[in-house]
Design a protein around this nucleic acid. Sequence first.
RNA 1: GGAGGGCUCGCAUAGCGGCCGAGUGCACCGGUCUUGAAAACCGGCAAACGAAAGUUUCGUGGGUUCAAAUCCCACGCCCUCCGCCA
Length: 419
Amino acid sequence: MIDIKILRENPDAVRASQKNRGEDETIVDKVLASDDARRVALSEFETLRAEQNTLSKAVATAKGDEKSALLENAKTLAGKVKEADTKRAELEEIAKNNIMQLSNILDPSAPIGKEEDFVVIEHVGTPRTFDFEAKDHVELGKLLGAIDTERGAKVAGSRSYYLTGSGAMLEFALVNYAISSAVQAGFTPVIPPVLVNPSAMEGTGFLGQAAENVYHLEKDDVYLVGTSEVPLAAFHMDEVLPVEKLPIRYAGYSSCFRREAGTYGKDTRGIIRVHQFDKVEMFSFCHPDQAQEEHKRLLQWEKDFLDAMEIPYRVIDVASGDLGSSANRKFDIEAWIPTQNAYREVTSTSNCTEFQARRLNIRFKDADGTKSVATLNGTLVAIPRMIVAILENHQNADGTVNIPKALQAFLGTERFELV
RNA sequence: GGAGGGCUCGCAUAGCGGCCGAGUGCACCGGUCUUGAAAACCGGCAAACGAAAGUUUCGUGGGUUCAAAUCCCACGCCCUCCGCCA
């Protein structure tokens, strides 16, 4: 939710932002109109209520005829108050629904355009040239006894898989490495609930455009999270955080569930796009003035991880049209995937400024009053895609895979052998 | 799944349908006293919106009433006991 005051003061900036995202800019006028209507109704109600309060007090002390006369007045007034209150509630609802449709205001530095209009910020490392035919992760996964997509499909349907043997060990190593480096960087490790209630889902903005990708358990009205961003953001819902504690950083490890509706035919082979995977997610609550710097820090931690995995990658500044509604800017890291001859997204970090915190009612207090915090999130490691990148980039001609140095201590070996 | 108890300002508690936005204790902040501290005493101290007047908030939502923390209904959460269970 954006700040209505900013919208009132500078509606053109919001219009421009909506337009650059490829979203409806006429909502801005709807929001302004419904906000005006809301405020009029509110003050009408408040005036009547004030009258009623005074009158009620008079009733309490009055006696006899005077009392019955006052009561008569009070009864008619009560009707008016109720009417005004109903109107107020209706208009507030409309105003809220309207403002909720607006996306976060873009960072002016974010590249404008559609998905393909991203800007490459940098390349790190050089894609390796193979003097043999590189195998893809599905084939390597079989040779190593690491990934079993066939049995995954048998038991759980398409986009499902088993990690077995060295694949399972690799997940544990990645998670251990990720968590220990996050802790070293000052993050509090968290294992959050993955089954959350509607308010958490709603507050983080996943019931908007992203709703069709969310699993909903109707019988109990709970949702399976697509990322631990949801429970981490909602962790401090309705709280006022001490300003001197900011930034507060959490590293959440959880399973993530995605319906992947509308992606039929995309990435059907292997484990690039799956319904369930584990992920270590960074989440930060910080002072709004610090948000941009914090965003850079999150990006740096993501780069450090890729560096440690010894994988070539590039960093892109995601274009306005491809940003989530909560983000005002987003950087993706794309790892080189040899058999696809392409860079593919493995991690992503978004600056949500105060947008998410305003919905979730997460604030901090300083000398000037109580204000919304800024929230930011970033992937430290999404297991399946990192496994793909590691297997494919570090493979040998015989199908064995060299283990990056950073993970060797966690695996007790330098190489994954054939089974 | 069954049976009970509870949810009030950071914590603990009081609260008769109007005198309750709400008392008390602890904590906290400021002051007096003191060489300094403690104790004692004095004062302050929930939040949101608003320029202000004022409005709203006693788990949440509805209802009764001129008037609800207080009465009624539903839901949520917490605790205890029984059953089942990783």
